[in-house]
């Protein structure tokens, strides 16, 4: 059943109020809330609308949700070059506490797309997440770094974007529009994540059979979305990611969690 949700509340929280978030209130007395962990880089901007729609859908069914930006991303404090993996993990934990505080819920479901899923997975203990819903999470950091580097190299010669190829130096130390620090690059290159020991739903919209088997073997539920998501597609770099199927799948899973 869908209820008329209250308007979302923009807020600052965390150390020095440096994190920006939007809190979507749920129903009074609810026990479970959802923390929406955004991806990083351009994926964050591409997923913004979908995260908002998902938060509205959850709030509409009575589940509070918190969207937020990590330090150095979105509307949070800090520059893009300051984004750093360990700080992002701290931010997930800080945001989870903020959600507990605002919603009064002790039970938190963590959702994340791409690196947002990776961060929810990596922070599952420190943020005390009770359950995870992961959409195409990045589990092999080295492969992800290689893919972003390849996209950046191709960007230089993208004639749909530039009148003439740009010098390599103009594109150095960046991934698709964002400055990247040495620290984050190194941290991502070393990233290797295993399935968690928590109730988990893995949603896949890109082919990754090995991940599917690993998660299934660890007891996670795995589902495949009918449409592939164009994550690493230079031609659609500034096109919003949309998936009603994803919103429905996550909403359904959260409803199940309420009754689990």
């Amino acid at each position: 059943m869908t209820r008329r949700s209250e308007p979302d509340i923009p807020c600052h929280f965390g150390p020095h109020g440096g994190l920006f978030g939007l809190y979507h209130p749920g129903a009074l007395g609810a026990k479970t809330a959802v923390l929406l962990c955004p991806p990083l880089g351009q994926d964050l901007i591409r997923c913004h609308r979908l995260y908002r729609q998902l938060a509205h859908a959850l709030a509409g069914q009575g589940t509070a949700a918190l969207r937020f930006d990590y330090y150095g991303t979105g509307d949070s404090a800090g520059g893009s070059e300051e984004v750093e993996w360990l700080r992002c993990l701290e931010d997930v934990a800080t945001a989870a506490e903020q959600l507990r505080l605002r919603s009064g819920c002790e039970r938190i479901v963590g959702f994340g797309a791409r690196l947002g899923g990776s961060l929810a997975l990596a922070a599952v203990d420190s943020a005390r997440l009770d359950e995870l819903i992961l959409w195409d999470p990045v589990l092999d950091g080295a492969a992800h770094v290689a893919a972003l580097d390849a996209l950046q190299a191709a960007l230089r010669f993208d004639t749909d974007r530039f009148v003439a190829p740009r010098p390599a130096t103009a594109l150095a130390d960046q991934w698709q529009g964002f400055a990247v620090g040495i620290c984050l690059r190194q941290q991502l290159a070393e990233l290797c994540l295993d399935p968690p020991h928590r109730r988990t739903l893995l949603l896949q919209s890109v082919a990754a059979a090995a991940d599917r088997h690993r998660f299934a073997a660890a007891g996670a539920e795995v589902a495949t979305l009918s449409q592939p998501t164009p994550w690493n597609d230079l031609a659609r770099l500034e096109t919003a990611i949309q998936s009603h199927e994803l919103i429905e799948a996550v909403s359904r899973r959260v409803q199940e969690a309420l009754h689990a």
Binding site: Q42, I45, H48, R49, T73, G74, D75, G79, S80, G177, F178, E238, A240
Partner: peptide
């Protein structure tokens, strides 16, 4: 365009 207030590649924040 349709990009939220942070702007393309966070241009508006910067």
């Amino acid at each position: 365009g349709l990009v939220h207030r942070v702007g393309p590649f966070r241009l508006h924040v910067e």
